[in-house]
Amino acid sequence: MSDTDLKLVAEKRTQFGKGAARKIRRDHKIPAVMYGHGAEPVHITLPGHDTMMALKTANALLTIVIDGDEQMALAKDVQRDPIKPVIEHVDLVIVRKGEKVTVDVPVHLEGEAAPETVVTLDAQTLQLEVEATHIPENLVVSVEGLEAGTQIKASEVELPRGAALVVDEETLVVNITQQISQDELDAELAEAEEEAGIEREESDEAAEGENAESGEAAAEGEKAESAEA
């Protein structure tokens, strides 16, 4: 997404409350508030479609235009409808060029680990301190050819220039383990059930088989009785 796509023309809001917010959303717009750097909070209305598209990018740096004046901001909190694909409200925090901000950046895995291994992404995001104008879209971690037993910690993740880790350097990001076979999985499950005192119930197939055998035996018995009569 280009910088021009992240420029949103906003309007100042003078009406507040649930009723006013519902009216704004009916007009396909989004109520928002912008604050920071000691400035008084500014209540605004954002264009619905353009804002939704812009906020699809994590930590998108937005340029908010109000009455011709431009202000850079980051979405601090985005309230979404639990059912509909609709943004209900946005909190924006003002940032300035060269200023450092703390953000959670998604971790993206690439490559294929060694055969018969399981790759677990333990940290979906890593918290970084970066310049507001140089926030990475994601952090790429390669697992290409890595063997079981390999662990990648936060300190081993390549960061963009000027970025610093906020989380503990020992934070586990990726864990690669040996793939377990179905027999081993069944054995572990049986052992766990035994330790917990759980008795396995017969499977449906086994029960059906027994019912079928019982039915056949009953039928044979009836035939024998008829022959004797």
Rank of each mutant, 00 (worst) to 15 (best):
K23V: 12
D91E: 07
D104F: 07
P160T: 02
L61I: 04
K76M: 09
A217E: 12
Q178A: 15
T63W: 15
L128A: 05
P47L: 13
Q179T: 09
E158Y: 04
E40L: 10
R96P: 01
Q15W: 03
L189I: 14
P41M: 01
A224V: 14
D3P: 03
L189Q: 15
S226I: 12
G38H: 06
S181K: 06
G48E: 06
Q151W: 03
R25Q: 09
A219T: 15
S214K: 07
G197S: 03
M53K: 13
V118Y: 07
V173E: 03
Y35K: 02
T57I: 06
E199S: 08
N211H: 15
E191F: 08
E131Y: 15
A218K: 13
L74N: 01
R22K: 12
D67N: 12
M53C: 14
T102A: 13
D204H: 10
D81K: 10
G149W: 01
D122G: 04
E208F: 00
I152L: 03
H49R: 12
V107P: 01
I198A: 06
D77Y: 05
E40H: 03
E193D: 13
D81Y: 12
A54C: 09
D27T: 08
A32T: 08
T45A: 14
V95C: 08
E228M: 12
A73T: 03
Q179F: 04
E210Q: 07
I152T: 00
T45H: 03
P41F: 00
T125E: 10
D50V: 15
V166Q: 01
L139Q: 00
H43D: 10
T133K: 09
M1K: 07
H108E: 03
M72V: 12
A212D: 07
E220Y: 05
E147M: 11
D91A: 08
V141R: 01
R96Q: 06
T102I: 13
R96Y: 08
V105L: 03
L46A: 09
A192Y: 08
P31V: 14
L109W: 03
K76C: 06
T102C: 14
E11T: 07
E193A: 15
Q127F: 09
A229M: 12
R200Q: 14
G68R: 11
A227H: 14
A123C: 05
I198D: 08
K18R: 15
N59Q: 07
D204M: 10
